[in-house]
Design a protein around this nucleic acid. Sequence first.
RNA 1: GCUGAGGUAGCCUAGCCCGGCAAGGCGCCAGCCUUGAAAGCUGGUGGCGGUGACGCCUCGGGAGUUCAAAUCUCCCCCUCAGCGCCA
Length: 430
Amino acid sequence: MIDLELIRTDLAGVRANLERRQRPEYLELLELVHQSDATWRALRQDADALRRTRNELSRRIAERRKQGQPSPELDREAKELPEKMRAIEEKEAALLAERDVALKRLPNLLDPSVPFGQDDHDNVTVATWGDPAKDPGHRKSHVELLEELGMAEFERAHRASGAGFYYLKGPVVLLDLALQRFALDLLTERGFTPVEPPFMLRRAPYEGVTDLADFENVMYHIDGEDLYLIATSEHPLAALYQGEILDEEDLPIRLAGISMNFRKEIGGHGVDQKGIFRTHQFAKVEQFVFCRPEDSPQIHEEIRTNAEEVFRRLEVPYRVVNVCTGDLGTVASKKYDIEAWFPRQQAFREVVSCSNCTDYQARRLGIRLGKAGRPGKIVPHTLNSTAIATSRGLAVILEQYQRPDGSIEVPKVLRSYLGGTSSITREGLN
RNA sequence: GCUGAGGUAGCCUAGCCCGGCAAGGCGCCAGCCUUGAAAGCUGGUGGCGGUGACGCCUCGGGAGUUCAAAUCUCCCCCUCAGCGCCA
């Protein structure tokens, strides 16, 4: 949520920022916020004056009663007030609601370093690592490979749970766990505290962390309960300190979330219909940081470096893009995507999303900064980045590390998590 | 799921039966004192609107009764404890 104070003091600046997102409805919303706020403030004066009159009358009546001198004329005067107040108070409440609903639908302000553009074609590559395409000839898709190895059940999963679900079987399950453990260990080395969060959240905290449209498009809702399956551990981690005052001394707070993630994800791409690249359910290790406002640009680079390190150690080529204004989500002020090279598809595909959400989530969640016993008004910044999403992590490893004979080489950095095993074959771990 | 106890400012608590400006403590801030600090003393310490004087709002949320609601009535939410169920 954008700071209302900023809209009041620098409307033109906020408008110019929102224009970069090229969505006319945002400017309309901004105008609505500004108008209803101004009208509300004016009305507020009148409403306050009326309430003041009522309070004064009440006090005089109480005074007279105490002295044993009832005052029918004051009583009569007071009786007429509530009717007068009802209309103005209803109008006041309506304006306030209108303002706040619109304010909640405005996206975060963009960082100046976000490149201008329409869609993902305009994202700007800011770094590359590794040598993408070597010998793409023998590559099978991860789906073919897994089925040939007998380590996944797609048809049966679709029958049991529907499209977008899968069974993994055998050594590839251990590979999945190895990836998670590897990422968690890397982050622990770098000062992150592992956290296993709730996999469901209530609506109120959830509204604090995500685009409201996600309730329709992305999140699964538990029937008959005020609970939503999390789409990423970012969400429960952000909600961890909902309504609290963080001690500045404790910042930055670096958390490594590990969870299953659940997404409805409307639409689908032909090539991803089957398989584990785009699914309703996947495991992910996530970086999440609460920090002082002035530190967030630097922390953003830090968590990007951590995410890059995951793929460097896995020896998977990738590029980093600075996501352009037209492709950036509602909550982020700036976002890097890391796109790994999928040789079978001869394409870079997103495996990491690394965002600086500035004060947008924290303000909605009512999180503030302060020192012991002294609450402040400053709102901390939050940042999040994938470390590894194992579905895509597995998919890229299966494509990168497959051998012509249909076996899979285990990335060096994962071997210690698999008892030193260096390859996976039909027979299992070798 | 059942029963009970609770939800008051950054934290802890009183007030609720019996309606009349939310009391007190801790923490924090400032001042006094001190070589410095602690202790002690004094004052301050929620949100919003207003240039300001000042005012309004705030007792989990909502509705109602009333001139007036933390307090009375109704509905709802949440937390904790015990019991039940349970990997």
